[in-house]
Amino acid sequence: MIRRFLPLLILLAVLMVAAVGLRRDPTILPSTLLDSKAPLLRAALLQDGGMPQTAELQALLPQGKPSLLNVWASWCTACLQEHAALQRLAASGVTIFGLNYKDTDAAAMAWLRERHNPYRAVFVDPQGILGRDWGVYGVPETFVIDGQGVVRQRIVGPIDDRALSQQLAKLSR
């Protein structure tokens, strides 16, 4: 009896492996930063004129509350796509920091002026050197940092604000 159905069982097993394997997106890589302290991020802030200012992300992180670090650029179309989601999150009280990746201050400033600015502060990384410390390999990327300054998740590509706010709520508890 078992012998008879063995080929069918093998076929089912192969199909199951294929179904799982084909649905995985191989371009989305796990971050090596997960569950470790966020790398030190100290850089100039994006600002509208005035004296240049340097800040440290670690000093700005809200204590005991999760926040986001969103890596973006004005030349990145997927960033435009996720901008509304970031705004909804910011409006609901989520602290979002920006890392302006391989961009010019003028272009980034104009981009933010045209749309609403969802960021608490934006660090500038014109050469993409800071992004490398975070293992950034494309924009947009979003890091979820918990209340203790530990990286809990990385999202490659545009974010889904509904799923993300659920996760943030879990981290706030």
């Binding site: 890589l29 796990p30 971050s31 090596t32 490398r132 410390d133 293992g135 390999y137």
Partner: peptide, 8 residues
């Protein structure tokens, strides 16, 4: 590089 991006 492995520390930053993983074994991949």
């Amino acid at each position: 590089l492995v520390k930053r991006y993983g074994d991949f």
